[in-house]
Design a protein around this nucleic acid. Structure first.
Lengths: 155, 155
DNA sequence: ATTTTTGCAAACCTTTTGCATGGAA
DNA sequence: TTCCATGCAAAAGGTTTGCAAAAAT
């Protein structure tokens, strides 16, 4: 998961202009430890800097996605959520209770996928693997009869 | 991919009522050979039976999804599309040009995923693997400088 | 200087809802 | 006869847009 400085560096080399708003929004991103919705992002952005308009935030999301500063995840329930990006090809394990994300580095599926693609004759492929479940901590919480989260909200 | 009779049988055993509208909508589903959007579905449904309201169609989509008559796929570009369901656990290969879908039966990823889940201590997991690319036929079409599809529309 | 970015508010577009009517079981 | 399903039209909800002003390069 990118640090603030890494995000800033990506932004600086993106060809887009470095504005106060975008900088603020990176500061907002820094505060998330798991996944968040556009609405979560907007709320926290309003708390931290109420002068940033909704449209600016949505435009920034697009920019951040394009540059890999953000990644978009499709939850099983249909919600789209975002997480701060990280380097290289990887997949995610997401906790459906607290929204925590674990990166799966070194994609262990490359070989199988390669075989399938070859067999079917597809070209220019990309793949997306998402595993959803309940993380260790949230399992405990459920056992204890609570409804807790790590302070991260998900739908 | 379910046949009409299979879809009907699922619907019959679903506990939901068998209405003319739902039957019509199954007939509409039958005509799709690849993926389609809710809008595609609505359009074709209007052609085949203009008396079916939009709300009914959306309510039917939910029902069909719940019963596995339909499956929802998240395209890389953010679009949600649907395909007629099929039996058992499987994943999809989708052509981003024509929307054709190939089922990948016998999930070749189970073992790796199991390992990851165990290592991370997640419970009650499910996974979703989507591979997007350009199918053999659309590769040919592109080589020939055309922009054709198999008659199936995608975003 | 020039071009991008911003904020506002209105527009958009797809999906959902409330409710009275109609239809299945 | 009972409850579910439908159609309509209106509402919702989240995202995008047009535009003039402001800021970055």
């Amino acid at each position: 998961m990118y640090t603030f400085d890494e995000m800033l560096s990506v932004l600086n080399n993106s060809g887009y202009r470095l504005t106060d708003q975008r900088l603020s929004l990176l500061r907002v991103l820094e505060t998330f430890s798991g996944s968040f919705s556009a609405l979560d992002f907007e709320k926290k952005s309003n708390e931290m800097d109420p002068s940033i308009g909704r449209a600016t935030m949505f435009r920034a999301i697009d920019l951040f996605l394009e540059r890999g500063i953000l990644e978009k995840i499709h939850r099983e329930n249909g919600d789209d959520v975002y997480i701060v990006g990280s380097k290289g090809h990887h997949h995610h394990l997401i906790c459906r209770v607290c929204g925590e994300i674990r990166d799966i580095d070194a994609c262990p599926f490359e070989e199988e996928i390669e075989m399938i693609i070859e067999k079917e004759g597809f070209a220019r492929t990309l793949h997306r693997i998402e595993i959803e479940g309940v993380c260790r901590n949230c399992q405990k919480v459920v056992e204890e009869g609570e409804s807790g989260t790590h302070g991260v909200k998900m739908g």
